[in-house]
Structure formats: C-alpha cells, structure tokens
C-alpha cells in the first residue's frame, strides 16, 4: 500500500534522507528505529506532507497514488495519519468539535455522508471505551494545557476515531509511562485488527514489548541500512546502534 523508492529530502540546504526505500503492505506493522538525527522524524513529516521538507528525488506511492503530489489534507483524506511527536495546541478549539470536523472533512472527501452530532457522539463513546480513556479531554481545547501523556493519548484517540489506512507514529512512546504505553499499544493493535498498516518510528525497543512488529528497519544517515523481523529489535537493544555502524549522528 505504501511504496517508497530512492527518497531524498532536504531541510534548508541539508540533505536528511539520502535514498530511502521502504515497502509497507496491508495490515503490516513496521518499526523504524535509529539513533537521533538519523532522519526518522523527517521521514514521518515528508510522508505527511510538511512543506518545510524539500523532496529532491525518489517516489512515494500510497494506495496507487503519487503521494508527493498531494496536499497534507488530501493525504489525510486518502487514509494517512501522523501521530505527532509534539502534538500542537489549538487554544479555544474544542477537542470534540475538532474531531468531528476532521472526521467529516475526511468522510465528505470520500463521498460519504457526514455524521451528525448524535452519530458522532455514539462513535466517540465507542472508541473511548476501547482505549479505556475518560472523556474529560474531549471537553477541553485541543491539546491546550494537556500534559505530555495526555497529548499522546489524544493523538492515539484521534487515530482510533479516524481509522487511517496507514498510521505513522512519530516517537509516540518517548517520555511515556507504562500506562500510556499500553494505551498506545491498544490503539495500534486495534488498527492492526482492521487490516490497517502502521509505521512506528521509535528510538527505543521498549514500545515493541507491547506491539509486536512484523518488520524492523534500522535507519541511519538517511537510509535504511538493515531490515529484519522483530528479533532485530532485540539484537539492537543488546548491542546498540554502534553494532551496525550507525552511531549517533554528529
């Protein structure tokens, strides 16, 4: 469903991705690991369509479409979702209202009827239950005044509600306690059950105790230098990134 070939991207004049290849099939969970500065977050943002990153070479196809030709919102309409490493605060914008607007924007772009308030609330309650979330976050402005853990939970809740075909989690596990890690894992596993695909961008192996990836890739210096099964993550945990010649970038 996602095919990345020879992707090169720059931030300013600095090349971050230097010829990256990645294939993600339906229902697969891929973990992308790597030291700081290896280009993990850049990959996540390039896939979501952030303009600050300039793609200089390569192709990305998603669901048969040229992803790089689409705006961020068109990518969301196609079923791409990015859980942000640093979720953005929207003061004054009610979280429930925001979610309803987002879901309906996606539905109407797909030619589906918009959900009315009643149907939306029903759906929301259902998803809340699956994730064992309480609804206090929904009455507050989007991410505004949320703790770090609450922001991450909110990202996962959005993901559960929007049911993307491909979710990219950008270091969603960083700085989380065990309880929130479980929620993240539940969210991912729920999607997986729906035959949806997930890319987990992570620095640590810890998250993979809760989510068993189908594939693990090591990203270093802007390319994937090694791919394998879940055992690769354990090996990394044991030996460190240096083992693959993928030291922390300068």
């Amino acid at each position: 469903m996602l095919s990345v070939k020879g992707l090169r991207a720059k931030v300013g004049e600095k090349e971050i991705l230097k010829g990256l290849d990645l294939e993600v099939g339906r229902g697969e969970v891929h973990a992308i690991m790597g030291p700081n500065g290896s280009g993990k977050s850049t990959l996540a943002h390039v896939l979501a369509g952030r303009e600050d990153y300039r793609v200089t070479a390569g192709t990305v196809t998603f669901e048969g479409r040229d992803l790089l030709a689409l705006t961020p919102e068109e990518r969301a309409h196609l079923g791409l979702f990015l859980a942000f490493q640093y979720p953005v605060e929207l003061p004054g914008v009610n979280n429930t209202y925001f979610l309803k607007a987002a879901l309906n924007a996606i539905r109407s772009a797909r030619g589906q009827p918009e959900l009315d308030a009643v149907a939306f609330l029903r759906l929301m309650r259902e998803r809340l239950k699956v994730l064992y979330l309480d609804d206090s976050l929904l009455k507050r402005p989007v991410n505004f005044g949320f703790s770090g853990g609450e922001k991450k939970r909110n990202e996962i809740f959005q993901m559960a509600l929007l049911e993307p075909k491909l979710a990219i989690l950008d270091e969603t596990d960083s700085g989380l306690d065990i309880d929130v890690l479980r929620i993240v894992a539940d969210g991912v596993n729920a999607l997986r059950g729906l035959e949806r695909s997930v890319i987990l961008v992570t620095h640590y192996q810890r998250l993979l105790d809760y989510i068993e990836p189908d594939f693990v890739h090591v990203l270093a210096h802007g390319r994937i230098i090694r791919s394998g099964g879940k055992e690769l993550a354990l090996e990394l945990e044991e030996k460190g990134y240096g083992w693959l010649g993928a030291e922390e970038a300068a």
């Binding site: 369509g49 919102e73 969301a76 942000f84 953005v88 003061p91 209202y97 925001f98 987002a102 879901l103």
Partner: peptide, 30 residues
C-alpha cells in the same frame, strides 16, 4: 497577543482540514 502558526495549520491539515477551515476554527475559538 498570539499568532496562528504554521505548526497549527499543518496539524489541522494532517487531520484532513483545509487551511481555511483551520483558520476559521482557530479564529472562532478565539
């Protein structure tokens, strides 16, 4: 005094909203 930032717009757009919807939403909240 606050500003509507590029980060806020990108966040909204990555959820399927157009930049205009995002601005309208933030302004209405304000």
């Amino acid at each position: 005094t606050s500003k509507i930032s590029d980060d806020q717009l990108f966040y909204c757009r990555s959820r399927g909203l157009t930049a205009e919807d995002a601005v309208a939403m933030i302004v209405n909240g304000f």
